[in-house]
Design a protein around this nucleic acid. Structure first.
Length: 271
DNA sequence: ACTTCGACCTGTTGGC
DNA sequence: TGCCAACAGGTCGAAG
């Protein structure tokens, strides 16, 4: 679930329900997430308003006058607005309960996500300080990525999934963007021409923008509990389609492993 | 400085 | 139907 488009969609979904709302209490049912939920958060946040909500890469940042709540959804995390009395599931680890009786509920079966507490300037937080530019910002352009790729022998797919290079490009969209750009995911980053990078950067932006717009329509209502899945699945060109025909040339799509991640591509369209 | 790999967890899927 | 291994949207940090 949580690639950048879903984190962005989550941000848009929860923001109107929590902005300028005061936190009454924080209920922690399981504090062992990727890192333990810190005590300072439980002491400092209650009684204060959430003033602003931002996204940095796949991190959600909830600002208050006492500090910043940092949330990452990991591989299986999700956030939703519920009534505080709504039945609690096995993996509902944390509730941020508001004064109006609503709660921001964090659910995460695999517990690869995290809930942390940081101080401003939050960009200096250890988890955020080394992050590369946002993929949809002007800072992330062809010149930048081309420069970063020089002298790098890693596969291009590994490079664009590296958060120090650019944030928010997960496995699904790395596969998709490389297909659209016509680049073989195994190619060494330094051996790819500038011309190809001029195709790749817009492909990454396009695929993320499109997914955000779709996510925005299917995950709109965050107070609805029905939890609708399967949003853009059908529009994927390569991810999850290994062994099937390429939508462009009918060649059989190859599935390999690259850096322990499943990688699908068309050996005819992607060189 | 760069690259690879193990680790953190639970749930689902596919082969036998 | 049951069992078990492999795999899943992430990413940090140690080891090479």
């Amino acid at each position: 679930m949580p690639e950048l488009p879903e984190v962005e969609t989550t941000k848009q979904g929860i923001s109107p329900h929590i902005r300028n709302k005061r936190v009454r209490e924080i209920i922690v049912r399981q504090r062992k997430l990727r890192w333990e939920v810190p005590n300072d958060l439980l002491i400092d946040l209650p009684g204060n308003k959430i003033t602003n909500i931002q996204r940095r890469g796949k991190y959600l940042l909830l600002y208050s006058s006492k500090g910043v709540l940092i949330i990452h959804l990991g591989m299986s995390g999700s956030l939703r607005i519920v009534d505080e009395s709504f039945s609690v599931g096995k993996h509902d680890h944390v509730d941020i309960v508001l004064e109006n009786g609503n709660a921001l509920r964090f659910t995460d079966p695999r517990r690869f996500g995290c809930i942390l507490w940081g101080q401003e300037p939050i960009e200096s937080h250890p988890l955020l300080v080394k992050l590369g530019p946002e993929p949809l910002s002007n800072e992330f352009d062809c010149d930048y990525l081309f420069a970063q790729s020089r002298h790098r022998s890693v596969a291009i797919k590994t490079l664009i999934m590296d958060s120090k290079i650019v944030v928010g490009v997960g496995n699904i969209y790395a596969n998709e963007a490389l297909f659209i750009a016509g680049i073989n995911p195994k190619r060494q980053a330094r051996k790819i021409s500038k011309l190809k990078y001029e195709k790749l950067v817009p492909s990454i932006k396009e695929v993320l923008r499109q997914a955000i717009s779709v996510g925005g329509t299917t995950l709109r209502d965050f107070t609805n509990i029905s939890g609708e899945p399967g949003y853009f699945r059908q529009s994927l060109r390569v991810y999850g389609r290994g062994g099937q025909e390429c939508s462009a040339c009918k060649n059989i799509l190859k599935e390999i492993r690259l850096g322990q991640r499943s990688t699908v591509y068309c050996s005819r369209c992607q060189r």
